[in-house]
């Protein structure tokens, strides 16, 4: 179980890092192309934009694990430990239901967009819309694995970032 979780987290991290790297490459090459070679690609802007949206929704679960989804903690912290834990479990349940609903609506939205086209590349609008159900599904998986540690507020702090003292 633990190994499975590690694999999923590693894959998820690789996904968002690679997406960001591709987006960065597209935009940077487009600048070089326009300034240096007087050419720019009509598709670059749209592809970069839609990939970034995928990266954003796909990274939501990782942001949760790292405690980057900020919340106002005053009330839970004030409560006696038992009630605090109960409240945090309730928050987990609320997040789970919400993202499940959004994921389901996301699938219907993909269907809705399927017969429309994007402006530049002319692919089906349903394809970029897939970012929502994919992101919600990844979030639900991450939340399922991480729920217990979320309740204990035991977040993963990455080296190099906000780790001072």
């Amino acid at each position: 179980m633990r190994a499975l979780e590690c694999w999923i987290v590693a894959l998820n991290r690789a996904l968002v890092a690679i997406v960001l790297a591709i987006v960065f490459a597209i935009v940077f090459i487009n600048v070089v192309g326009r300034y240096g070679f007087n050419t720019s690609f009509a598709w670059a802007e749209e592809v970069a934009r839609h990939l970034m949206i995928l990266g954003a929704f796909a990274g939501a679960g990782l942001a949760l694990r790292e405690g980057r989804l900020v919340a106002i903690d005053a009330l839970p912290i004030m409560l006696p430990r038992r009630y605090e834990l109960a409240l945090r479990w309730a928050i987990v349940a609320v997040m789970f239901v919400f993202m499940a609903v959004m994921g389901w609506l996301g699938i219907r939205f993909v269907e809705f967009g399927w017969n429309k086209e994007t402006m530049s590349t002319g692919i089906s609008r349903g394809i970029p819309y897939l970012a929502i159900p994919i992101g919600c599904a990844l979030f639900l998986v991450q939340l399922a694995f991480f729920a217990k540690r979320f309740v204990a507020q035991d977040f993963e702090i990455q080296a190099g970032g906000a780790s001072v003292e």
Binding site: R34, N38, S40, A42, E45, S120, G122
Partner: peptide
């Protein structure tokens, strides 16, 4: 040009370079 390929075609057919 606007970010749709038909406008790129228009401007390039006139010899300019199209930047969406």
């Amino acid at each position: 040009v606007m970010t749709a390929p038909v406008w790129v075609t228009l401007v390039e057919s006139l010899g300019a370079s199209a930047t969406p």
